[in-house]
């Protein structure tokens, strides 16, 4: 019995001098892997406008029907984005929208801190979807 106790204490002692494996979340955060599927984010063009052409393919493919795309005729006379709405309450983070997008205008960001006190803040519009910090893929050409 005492042998087992000593074994345990030895392990504790050994671990005591190792650097810790845990992080002091939320003060510290672990970097997410490249292929991590955080909440979807829209990609901006150089001028800050969304790259999205409002084709509606993400809306069509979305299995949980959480995307709504509203198009309008833009200043150049072509189709452009009027409103983009993504309802995170329903989103299953499957990434099909990213696969469907013909112009790589939507990516899965690394953002995973999505807890909220009510449902409304989880319904994101194009402004919120564009402004996501540390998005992998944002700088992609």
């Amino acid at each position: 019995m005492s042998k087992a106790l000593l074994k345990g204490l030895a392990l504790t002692l050994k671990t005591f001098f190792r650097p810790p494996v845990t992080l002091e979340y939320p003060d510290e955060k672990r970097p997410v892997p490249d292929r991590f599927r955080g909440r979807p984010a829209l990609v901006a063009r150089a001028d800050g406008a969304p790259r999205c052409v409002a084709c509606g393919l993400c809306e069509k493919i979305c299995p949980s029907l959480c995307i709504t795309v509203v198009a309008e005729t833009g200043p150049e006379g072509t189709r452009s984005l009027a409103r983009y709405r993504l309802d995170l309450n329903r989103c299953s983070f499957c990434g099909l929208c990213v696969e469907a997008c013909p112009v790589e205008a939507i990516v899965m960001s690394g953002e995973y801190e999505l807890a909220s006190g009510s449902r409304e803040p989880l319904v994101l519009d194009e402004g919120r979807l564009l402004a996501a910090p540390d998005r992998p893929g944002e700088e992609r050409p």
């Binding site: 509606g56 069509k60 198009a71 005729t73 072509t78 452009s80």
Partner: peptide
């Protein structure tokens, strides 16, 4: 009709 919606909707 242009740029309003998509035909599959």
């Amino acid at each position: 009709f242009k740029d309003g919606t998509r035909v599959w909707k």
